[in-house]
Structures are given as structure tokens and as C-alpha cells.
Design a protein around this nucleic acid. Structure first.
Lengths: 211, 211, 211, 211
DNA sequence: GACTAAACGAGACGGTACGTCGAGTCTTTGT
DNA sequence: ACAAAGACTCGACGTACCGTCTCGTTTAGTC
């Protein structure tokens, strides 16, 4: 064939391209975990990433975009849904996995951002927050459904309520009482959630009324 | 001797004194509730209080002092400890009172401050946060003790754990899922806490091990 | 009379007020003379004046305003109109005074600004330039008029043309050939202008046509 | 052995070579005439020349080099030396030719550069300025010499002084008063220069002392 | 007519300076 | 003595422009 001198799409952006992107996003997450969202400065991120701040402004325009993209990147690392054949242990696994995530870099960065009042007003970040929560709900769903099928939980149990009961104590300790969180905390939370679910307190709101 | 003007402790500050103080502290709380701690500006507080910002800097020096004093002032308004003769209703009353406090101006200002990461680093504010939490614990104590005495709860039940289980879902909804909080939420939380306590999951940690 | 609690115009602006103004305008002139208009930086002016750049931006908003006001301030220092009873010596005095002004700080700053292309596009500065030139013309007027009355110059001689012929060589040396300018230059220019005026070459344009 | 391609000097540079050079230098002159030296941006020149800025930086390294070469290229277009057999008309021709040059593209670009303070500090550009002025002097020389030989001008008349007196009014109008320049201006300047020369005011400085 | 070296196009990047903004300090004036 | 009013200092922010760098592409002489 004769040449076809097409301006074929640049597969990789010109210049140092992706290395910069990676470095900057990583630096953003670290800064988020360390100093939080409100105090996050583009200049500091740049310094940590070994990059000049104008580069960041060029590619992400605003701090919000930068944080949004950094968090979105991080979302992938999902928590596996446990399936031990038993609701009690399934819930315990979920709780422990959650505790592990909270302690890790991903969780720390995520939380530091998501709990900031001003971050919550940024649509992109609010969306990520929403997605994160929804993901947690989806984790609980199969566990709860299987529990109902096995007769371990009453019909009508709401997976969302279960997961909320499960993680609420962890958030409380993290944000309010500032107590350390370990496996004991996770296990206790799992027990509480299980008890409540079994007792039918965590049914869908329409059913709870008469429950 | 020539005069030695007796610097006797001024019982009440000279001039417009206390009026200014009251107005400024009130304005501070309102600003906290509206814009949060991170975004709180002394200048805005001054404007709202109808006072010049130099006046505020003169009396409180720093933003931290100002916020600290404003919050300390607010602490008085305690929640009464219910005593209905029944743990179940006592806990429900506690939960409902808590929900009411959260929604009120006092709660809003308190939370906006206490949940800010940078506020948490200010010793004075951290202390107030601690006092606030301790106060909640003290509320639960008589309720739980009476419950144990009446045989409604197992011996060794930890009041702190009970109150934490009680309020955790409210904080979760407030901070994480951003769902509305109403009496239904409170009642459900009370049920869950009661179930867990009855089942012996909320005993003092030394006992929970074998529980 | 008692009270008159009028909000009488503040004679002097609050704060460090006029000292800053004076220092900044002086620094502006020095910077202009040294580095020219194009390279003049507000920050440098601030540094030289021992003042922060925001102070300058607050009071003058733009670099143009600043330069405009600095130059306007300088305009006062007028050159006296000579009256020696003789056109030849009058013109020589004018030329020498002009040379002296050029060498002085006022002249240097003025020129550095006025000759910049981009400064010429700023209305305020263009106006000052115009005023400066007009002032020169007014200097020549009485000299020329008296010369005509004494019969030393032909009727219809245009003062503006005379002053232009007088100062043109100085500007040429200053801007184009970069030669040093001294009294010899001034005296030669005065002689040339006198010759030309006497010969009737510098009449008003309507008359020159038939001259 | 196979080949070892002899790196003999390429007679003509590879690539699009000279077309680019021409286009860039022309664009530089136009930009100079339009926006002046201080505001001249390599990027703008590149855009106008239909070339990328890196190309310019590659070949000229600095803005100064670029301008220097562009001006040097332009220098060739000399003004012819008039020889009408009469000093008066010769000078008039010189003045008119100068006016014409000033108005033309060459003159405009040259002036915009040469009169900039910062351009004057660049050695290469200063040298070109010097050459330009010298060239003017050489134009006057034969005219003045022939005038002296014909007895129209006094011996010792300095050609440089004559040409300076001739062109000074034009520069004044161009740079200071911003008046339009036409043939009337040229003719008047010629008359003034002639008068001054005839009167012996424009002799070499050593002789003027006693003149 | 294929090969290759140099020049060119494209744009990301580092860097400097700019003008703006909010916070806290200082001085002057008024009560 | 204390409050009001602002001017001032300070530092950080986001922007604009400049000159450099590193790719991929085109062009023009050479084998």
C-alpha cells in the first residue's frame, strides 16, 4: 500500500507525559492523607512530585480536578466480597477488610478528602464519595442475600442498613473519639450488625414500620 | 508617695465590655455552623457581630482562642439524663435527644468545628471535643447502671460502648452518607444498641474477650 | 460652640499615609530614570521605597497610574523664562536651562518614560507628555514676542517652531547619537535657532508659504 | 571497509533552509515596526512567519541575535547621495530622502528598535545603530565638501554637524511631539541647516570655539 | 529511487514575574 | 483606656509568558 501518511493519534502524550501524571497523582494522595483536603496546596504536591506547579495547573486546571482524578484512580482497588458459607463470618470478614482499607494509604487519602466540608461541595468529589459508598453497599448485598436464602437472616433485611451498622462504629472511632481501630473493633461491629439484622431491625424502611 | 494607681482587678471589663463579648461569641458560633471551621474568618465574625476585627484580635489574639471560648460557652447546655424506669425507653430518649441536639444550632456549630482536621490539632479545641464526648458517656452511665440493676442488661456492660453504638449511626449518616436524620433513625439506633447490650457484646473489653 | 460632631474630611489619610506616598513616588522616578518604563516593575519600586508591593497596587491599581502620578508630581519644577533684554542671550539661557533639566533626575525620569513606545499609548502619560511640551512652548513665547517687539525677529515668527529648533539637537544627541550634551551644544543650538528665526524660516506655517 | 560516510562540509544546509530564514527575518522586521522592540515576542514572529518558535530559537538562540540579523539585512538599502550642483538643493534632497526612509518599512523597523532603551544595551544592536548613523554622515560629506569647493559654505564646515542639524527636527517630531512629518518639514530643516552652515556655526568643534 | 542526516513541527515542561487575595499587625483618631 | 477605621506587611495563589527539552515528521542532498 502506498504510505497513508495519516496523522495517527499519538498513543502517548509528548514529552515526559505519563511519568509526570503518575508522580503527581501519587503525590496528591500522599498529601491528602497527610495534610487533608483543606490544607492541600498545589505547590506542595508539585514539590513532592518533583514537578513544577505550572505543570499541574496546565493538566488539571484546578485543585478540585486534581484531587478528583487522584481519587478516581484509587477507586479501582476494590474489596473482595467474602463467601464463607456463613453470614457471621462473612460480616466479620467485611468488617476486617474495611478496617484494613481505612488504615491503608488509599483509605486515609480517601477519608481525608471525603470528610472535608468544602470538598463535599465539589461535584466531582461528591460523586466519588457517592460511588465509594455505593460500592460498600454492593459488597453487602450478596452476603445478606445469601444469609436470607440460608435462613440465617429474616426476609426483607436491607443490605444497606446492614453495612451501615457494620461500618458506623469504625467511622465513629476514627472521626469522633479518635480511638485506635483494630480487629477487635471490627469483630464487635460485625456481631452487633448480625444481632440487629437477625432481630429484624435492619429491614427495608417500608417493612420496618410494621416490624 | 505619688499615686501608685492601684491596679485592682477589674471585676468587669471597662467600656462596652460584655456586650461586645456576647455578640462576638454568638457570631462565632453562627459562622461556625454556616461555613465551618476551616473557612471561618475573623473578619466575617467581626462583620456579623457589628464589631471591628481589631477588637477581636485584641481580646482573643487568635482564631483558635476565639473558637475555643465560643465553644466552651456553649457546652453548658446539657442533655438531661432520662429515667423512665426502662432501659429501652431510656436509650430511645437518649438517642432522640442526641438527634435534636445535632439539628440545633449548638450541635451544628460544635460539629462543624470538631470534625475539622485542622481544628483537631488545636489543643484547646481538642480538649473541648474530649469533654463533649465524656459528657455523652456520663449520660449513658446511670441509664446502663440502672438497667443492670433491674436485670435488663448483663453485668459488665460498658456504658461507653453502649453510647458509642447508640450514636455511631447518626454520625455516619451525618458525615458519610449525608442522609437525613430523624426520629426513626434514633429509634433504630436505640434498638440496635439495646440488642447488642443485652447480648453481652458491649461489655468492658477485659470481659468481652471471653464473652 | 459645643460639639459639631461633623465627620469632617480627614485632612490626612489614616495610617502611615503620606510618608508612603512620597517614598513610593520618589522611588518610581528613580526606577524610571535607571531602568526605563518598559522594564519598570512594581515590585522593584516597592523594594526601593521600603514598602510592600500590595500597598502600591492598593493605592495606584496599575503601573500606569503610578507612573502617571509620579510624573505629574514632578511637573511643577518649571524652568524660569529668561528676560535678558536680548533674544540671543534669552535663547541661550533657554537652551542651557533645558540641558540642565535633561541631565537632572527630573529630566531623566521624564524622558525615560515619555520616549517609550508603550508608555505613549497610556492616555495619562500621553497627556503629561503633551503638557510638558506645551510648557516648553510657553517658555519660548514671551522671548519670541519680546524679540519681535524689539525688532530682533521678523513679525510672524512662530515661538513653537523656535523652541523646536532649539531643543531638537539636544534630543538628537540624547536619543540617537548618544553624544554627551554640554553647554557648547546648547549654545550652538541657540545660535542655529536665532539664525533661522531671523531669516524668517520659523514663521507660522500659513505665512511660511509665502515667506 | 564499507563506506564510513565522509562527513564533508555541506555546502548548503539541509532542510527547508533559506526560505525559513527569509520569512523569519521579514516577519521580525514587520513585528518590530508594529509593536516595537520591547514588546517583540519570538512566538509572535514565529506565528507571523508560519514557523514554529523552536525553529527560531534553534537558529538564532536569542531574540537579540534575531533582531540584530534582521536589521543588518535591512541596512543595505542605502540612500543615494544627491549631486545637483548646489548645496541648497542637495540638502533639500537629503532631507526629503530621509523623510521618505523614515516613513517606509525599513525606517520604521529600524527606529522602533534603535530608540528602545533596552535594545541600546545589546552590543550587536548598538553597533548597527552606530553604523546607521555613520552612514548618514558619509552621505553628507560629499555634499558639504562640494559646497565648500564651490564657495557656498565656509571652509571648516563639519559634515556631521550639518547632517545632525538636518535630521534633528525630524526626529524631534517623530519622537517627542508626534507631529506628522512631510516634505514641508524636510524643506524647512534643509533651510535651517543651510543657514547655520553658511553662518559658520557648524564648523568642526576645534574651530567653532573662535567662530 | 532508497537512505540518511539535518531541519522542522508540536507541545510538555521548568522557571520567573506578575497582579490578587486573605490574614494579622500597626498607627492614628474618636469617644 | 478602649474601640473604630484603615493602611500596611506578609505570604500564598493562580496566571502568563519565556526559553528549553524531547519526541515524531518532513525535506533535501547522497549512495
Amino acid at each position: 500500500m502506498h504510505s497513508t501518511p495519516v496523522l495517527r493519534e499519538r498513543v502517548q502524550p509528548i514529552g515526559r507525559g505519563s511519568k509526570v501524571r503518575t508522580a503527581v497523582l501519587a503525590a496528591t494522595l500522599t498529601e491528602l492523607a497527610e495534610t487533608g483536603y483543606a490544607a492541600l496546596s498545589v505547590d506542595d504536591v508539585a514539590r513532592r512530585a518533583g514537578v513544577h506547579k505550572t505543570t499541574i495547573y496546565r493538566r488539571w486546571q484546578t485543585r478540585e480536578n486534581l484531587v478528583g482524578e487522584a481519587l478516581a484512580e484509587q477507586m479501582a482497588s476494590g474489596i473482595a466480597v467474602p463467601d464463607t458459607g456463613n453470614v457471621a463470618t462473612d460480616l466479620r470478614e467485611l468488617a476486617r477488610a474495611f478496617v484494613g482499607w481505612l488504615a491503608g494509604p488509599s483509605g486515609r487519602a480517601m477519608l481525608a478528602t471525603i470528610l472535608s466540608q468544602d470538598a463535599a461541595r465539589v461535584p466531582d468529589i461528591a460523586a466519588i464519595k457517592r460511588r465509594l459508598i455505593d460500592e460498600r453497599f454492593r459488597h453487602a448485598e450478596p452476603v445478606v442475600i445469601r444469609g436470607i436464602e440460608r435462613g440465617e437472616l429474616p426476609a426483607g433485611t436491607d443490605p444497606a442498613e446492614v453495612i451501615k451498622t457494620l461500618i458506623a462504629p469504625m467511622y465513629l472511632r476514627l472521626l469522633v473519639t479518635a480511638e485506635p481501630i483494630d480487629e477487635t473493633t471490627a469483630d464487635q461491629a460485625a456481631q452487633v450488625a448480625l444481632l440487629a439484622a437477625r432481630a429484624g431491625v435492619l429491614k427495608h424502611s417500608s417493612e420496618t414500620a410494621r416490624g
